Amino acid sequence: MAHIDYFFATISPYTYLAGGELEAIAKKHGATITYKPLDIMQLFARTGGQAPKDRHPNRQAYRLQDMAREGAAFDGVFNMQPAHFPTNMAPSSYAVIAAQKAGGGDVGALVQSFLRGVWGEDKNIAEDGVIRAALEAAGFDPALAESGMLTGAEEYAANLEEAVSRGVFGAPFYITDGDERFFGQDRLAQLDAHLTKIS
């Protein structure tokens, strides 16, 4: 059975614009997914990148044009000026980690709920009430928002270290068995083709 390690950030616009396509591809190929939320700003700093606000104006201008084009093709609401961006990624990331360990719900739906909260619903995903509601809607115990904080924090830090060691430099980033790496939501078709080839 194929496996995908999925490195992402709960505030990443391009991760949001991927929608549920990763989960659909995994289902198509019978592949499993391990969700690995990380601190994207720290990842940029560790791998030679910069936070969007610190990039050269040329890069900032292109990013906005590209996001607008991608957003126009997206099947959902995409607000390019969300009320709570950037916000603290850690609490929502801890919740994803705790939920994945607990099982019983839909981790993909939980991740999408946080991303949609930022880019489609103007929610602050660092707030406890928002996190608890997302957990419950995805079929998890909302108490995981508190009980998973310690283990979540440890794994969140470990995910960053793993990402750097495995060649990750942005989000969304997908790594399959055999160390095939795919960066960006616009590479999901390539991921699909690769899984077809190896199945």
Results as ranks from 00 to 15, higher is better:
residue 1 M to T: 13
residue 7 F to W: 14
residue 7 F to H: 11
residue 9 A to V: 01
residue 9 A to Q: 07
residue 13 P to S: 10
residue 14 Y to H: 14
residue 15 T to Q: 04
residue 16 Y to R: 09
residue 17 L to F: 01
residue 18 A to K: 03
residue 18 A to F: 01
residue 19 G to D: 00
residue 19 G to R: 01
residue 20 G to V: 02
residue 21 E to F: 02
residue 23 E to D: 13
residue 24 A to P: 11
residue 26 A to V: 11
residue 28 K to N: 12
residue 29 H to I: 06
residue 30 G to W: 10
residue 32 T to V: 06
residue 32 T to M: 05
residue 32 T to F: 05
residue 35 Y to D: 10
residue 37 P to K: 10
residue 38 L to R: 05
residue 39 D to Q: 13
residue 39 D to N: 15
residue 39 D to C: 12
residue 40 I to H: 02
residue 40 I to R: 08
residue 42 Q to P: 03
residue 43 L to G: 11
residue 44 F to A: 10
residue 44 F to P: 11
residue 52 P to A: 12
residue 53 K to G: 14
residue 53 K to P: 00
residue 53 K to E: 14
residue 54 D to G: 06
residue 55 R to I: 01
residue 57 P to C: 01
residue 58 N to K: 11
residue 60 Q to H: 05
residue 61 A to Y: 00
residue 63 R to N: 09
residue 64 L to E: 14
residue 64 L to G: 08
residue 66 D to S: 15
residue 69 R to E: 07
residue 70 E to W: 13
residue 71 G to A: 06
residue 71 G to T: 07
residue 72 A to C: 07
residue 73 A to E: 10
residue 73 A to V: 04
residue 74 F to W: 03
residue 74 F to R: 00
residue 76 G to Q: 00
residue 78 F to S: 02
residue 79 N to Y: 05
residue 87 T to R: 09
residue 90 A to L: 15
residue 90 A to I: 08
residue 92 S to P: 13
residue 95 A to D: 09
residue 95 A to H: 04
residue 96 V to A: 06
residue 97 I to L: 15
residue 98 A to Q: 03
residue 101 K to R: 15
residue 104 G to F: 10
residue 105 G to N: 04
residue 106 D to G: 03
residue 106 D to T: 06
residue 108 G to C: 04
residue 108 G to H: 02
residue 111 V to S: 03
residue 112 Q to F: 07
residue 113 S to T: 12
residue 114 F to G: 07
residue 116 R to I: 01
residue 117 G to C: 07
residue 120 G to Y: 02
residue 120 G to S: 04
residue 122 D to E: 12
residue 122 D to G: 13
residue 123 K to L: 14
residue 123 K to D: 05
residue 123 K to G: 02
residue 124 N to R: 05
residue 124 N to Y: 06
residue 125 I to W: 05
residue 126 A to D: 12
residue 127 E to N: 11
residue 128 D to G: 01
residue 130 V to W: 00
residue 135 L to Y: 02
residue 136 E to C: 09
residue 140 F to H: 03
residue 142 P to K: 11
residue 143 A to V: 08
residue 147 S to V: 08
residue 147 S to A: 15
residue 147 S to R: 14
residue 148 G to R: 11
residue 151 T to D: 15
residue 152 G to T: 10
residue 153 A to H: 14
residue 154 E to Q: 14
residue 155 E to T: 15
residue 155 E to P: 09
residue 155 E to W: 05
residue 159 N to A: 06
residue 160 L to M: 11
residue 162 E to K: 13
residue 166 R to K: 15
residue 169 F to W: 01
residue 170 G to V: 00
residue 170 G to E: 02
residue 170 G to Q: 00
residue 170 G to W: 02
residue 171 A to F: 04
residue 171 A to R: 03
residue 171 A to T: 15
residue 174 Y to Q: 12
residue 177 D to P: 07
residue 178 G to K: 11
residue 184 G to C: 09
residue 184 G to L: 04
residue 186 D to T: 02
residue 189 A to R: 12
residue 190 Q to M: 14
residue 191 L to T: 07
residue 191 L to C: 10
residue 193 A to F: 03
residue 194 H to M: 06
residue 194 H to G: 05
residue 194 H to E: 00
residue 197 K to G: 08
residue 199 S to W: 01
